[in-house]
Design a protein around this nucleic acid. Structure first.
Lengths: 186, 186
DNA sequence: GGGTGCATGTAATGGGTTACATGATTCT
DNA sequence: AGAATCATGTAACCCATTACATGCACCC
């Protein structure tokens, strides 16, 4: 079974927006799709090299004084084709490992208070997260309102909202019975 | 930063339920916590070896005719301690890579119909999934109703339900505007 | 003087899956 | 005859992060 390297597609996708450097890619990802996608230099630079050698991207070197040269990459026709292929292809379900659920599953081993602590932390994190998403939807996306990509950007943010709210609801439900459990024991 | 090997904790957790073999672990995981945790033999067997050498688990060899000997592992006192440590420790947030969202983000590159197809597939998968979760909650967990672990098992299943329903809602919302988008273009 | 940003990149290490090897038994 | 189940395990490979190396400019 071929495990296709998704970093390469992420790069092709980014370059479909506009030409940019590897350094810029990392920054761009972090502040846009960071909540559902992340890349490190250790992935990006070797991938760029590979894509270049296969002719899917082009490179232009911008000379800079007192700084390393900037390598600005852009899509070639073949790269655009490859991107389209991937966009059409079926998305294989990604494996998940939820450490918190694993802990809960082995729950009776420890005091219920331990779980209360964990779930509470998750609830707080998710509450913060939701605020961020709402801020992004309301103000962060303003500059793109007339961009054809706007509804697409928005839908990814809304995905985050839906999932985050679901987690929060689960946290509250779970906290309720965990606390009952802790009380019963006394 | 130390990236702790979670497979080892999963194994310790499983052995806190009852002694079992590596082969059994894989089967057990697949039919219980498979929706949020998975392990392969390539992880399990080396991990068992490591845990054994560190004295966190014990091994008994059951001779079998016409089959390889079965290695039945069980927790030692130190293993139980290590498990408890992990259960108390903070859970670090796991990185996520949502390929579908990545495709959506680069959406305008291709026809909206392509996205409709993908989201529809996801909706169908999640609908099936939800049915499974509901079946598990109603009948699958019956045998554990008087087990102290019962509410813990149930809460992991309910997590699955909550997240799955959230995904389904997002799919329906997304399909609505994607279809509008496709209509507008004609 | 020290942190941060710009900008390239690599090496070490670890996490994880897939595929294979072995081999008897039982089910279809 | 062929597939599945039981049961061990390893080797090859890929994916991914972290830490490091380099070095100037700018700001506090």
């Amino acid at each position: 079974m071929r495990r296709t390297n998704k970093t390469e597609f992420a790069i092709l996708g980014l370059l479909s927006l506009y030409p940019m450097s590897g350094y810029h890619m990392k920054a761009f990802i972090a502040q846009s799709i960071g909540f559902f996608w992340q890349e490190s230099y250790g992935q990006i630079y070797p991938a760029l090299r590979k894509l270049l050698s296969r002719g899917l991207i082009d490179r232009k070197v911008r000379r800079q004084k007192s700084r390393p040269d900037r390598h600005v990459y852009s899509l070639t026709a073949r790269g655009r084709e490859r991107l389209s292929e991937w966009l059409h292809a079926e998305t294989d379900p990604e494996p998940v490992r939820q450490e918190l659920l694993l802990k809960l599953f082995f729950g009776p081993t420890v005091d219920a208070k331990v779980h209360v602590q964990h779930v509470q932390t998750l609830l707080e994190q998710q509450t913060e997260r939701l605020k961020t998403f709402e801020r992004i939807e309301k103000t962060g996306l303003k500059p793109y309102e007339n961009d054809p990509a706007y509804p697409f950007y928005r839908s990814t943010v809304r995905y985050g909202q839906y999932i985050t709210r679901a987690r929060m609801r689960w946290c509250r439900e779970t906290l309720a019975w965990l606390r009952n459990q802790a009380d019963d024991k006394q």
